[in-house]
């Protein structure tokens, strides 16, 4: 494993910890999209089915379990915690997730490496992850004012993807015959989804202001 990949994973993990701490400390999930969190849970469940039949490394297994557990913990807080769930912007978080799930599933049926259940589900998880942040970005756009922690959470999620891109370039030049087109194309799309957000995040940071999205 190279340094970019490790940095990417750690940034991903940190983004989740930041979100969980925000929810626990402020007892509020205002500005957080439950739809996006549920999409991530679907992504992790469909991708990590291989926990049952393949072992890559202890690191790999532990990280997968952490991602699964934290995803469901966040959903539990937003749906069931008696204080936190009242702060959820249900009326604003109205993205139609089926518009993401169905096309991703169809694409996974059409473009995959092998027509098997686990392989199609794995491919589906790759496509879905690329667009899973969209409900969150739409919610942000609607509520306009972005609190620092939510902003940092999204910034870290975007950074994690950018680090994975660098990791793939590194692997391409250091590992003979290494290529994974489905992952590369989806990952590039996923990183591009964050570009607009990055622009406003960096601008706010440079001007030392609270982040604001244009109307």
């Amino acid at each position: 494993m190279n340094i970019f990949r490790l940095a990417g994973d750690m940034t991903h993990l940190l983004s989740i910890i930041v979100l969980l701490l925000k929810i626990q400390a402020t007892k509020s999930c205002a500005g957080v999209s439950l739809k996006t969190q549920e999409l991530y849970a679907v992504v992790f469940v469909t991708r990590y089915l291989d926990l049952f039949y393949s072992f890559i490394s202890l690191y790999n297994t532990v990280m997968k379990i952490i991602f699964l557990l934290t995803a469901f913990t966040i959903i539990w807080y937003m749906r069931k915690h008696k204080v936190v769930c009242q702060t959820y912007d249900k009326e604003q978080d109205t993205f139609r997730v089926l518009f993401l799930i169905v096309p991703c599933f169809v694409l996974a049926l059409l473009v995959n490496h092998e027509m098997s259940v686990t392989e199609v589900l794995w491919t589906f998880s790759i496509y879905l992850e690329a667009v899973a942040i969209l409900p969150q970005l739409v919610l942000l756009q609607r509520t306009k004012n972005v609190d620092n922690l939510t902003g940092n959470y999204i910034f870290m999620l975007g950074s994690y993807r950018a680090l994975y891109l660098v990791n793939w370039v590194y692997r391409y030049f250091t590992e003979l015959g290494y290529r994974q087109w489905i992952v590369w194309v989806s990952g590039t799309v996923q990183t591009c989804v964050y570009l607009d957000f990055f622009y406003y995040y960096v601008q706010a940071w440079r001007n030392n202001e609270r982040m604001k999205l244009p109307g």
Binding site: R5, D9, H12, D50, S54, I56, S57, N60, M63, K64, F67, H113, E114, W122, Y164, N167, G177, Y178, R179, Q180, I182, V183
Partner: peptide, 10 residues
Amino acid sequence: NGGKERKDEL
């Protein structure tokens, strides 16, 4: 590994 993806990434 003949083109088949290595699923060692998260």
